[in-house]
Amino acid sequence: MQLETALLIGVMFTVATYLVLQRSFVKILFGFLILTNAANFVVLAMSGRPDGKVAPVVLDPQSPMVDPLPQALILTAIVIGFGVAAYLVFLLYRLFLDQKTTNAAELYDEKESG
């Protein structure tokens, strides 16, 4: 499980970096969404191997539990990430309304903006 998780996180970070560096606003947006989730996965992976452990709800005090703290942490991080994503959508939309473009390269073209 650990190796697969590590690979998944690696792939997600790679894809996110690739998308963030693209010109299209939509791709940039998706890049940041994936980036946030990749970071959340890193934290989740820190609770260790889940094999043979039960969910962190105490029903049977004898069986080992998965470490609940990383899950609590990413719950907070997901909520924050959601808020920031909503903000980012609006920022990109406003950029589109003001500048009439969805291309980041055009947006920062020095010659055009003067």
């Binding site: 990749a38 970071a39 890193v42 990413i74 980012l88």
Partner: peptide, 27 residues
């Protein structure tokens, strides 16, 4: 508003790295 976007973008990147660092520290 054009200059707000790089600020937001780099800080989003920083936040993702920060939460990963929290994970590393916890491990």
């Amino acid at each position: 508003i054009k200059h707000a976007f790089p600020y937001v973008a780099i800080n989003l990147f920083g936040s993702a790295l920060f939460i990963s660092a929290c994970g590393l520290a916890y491990k």
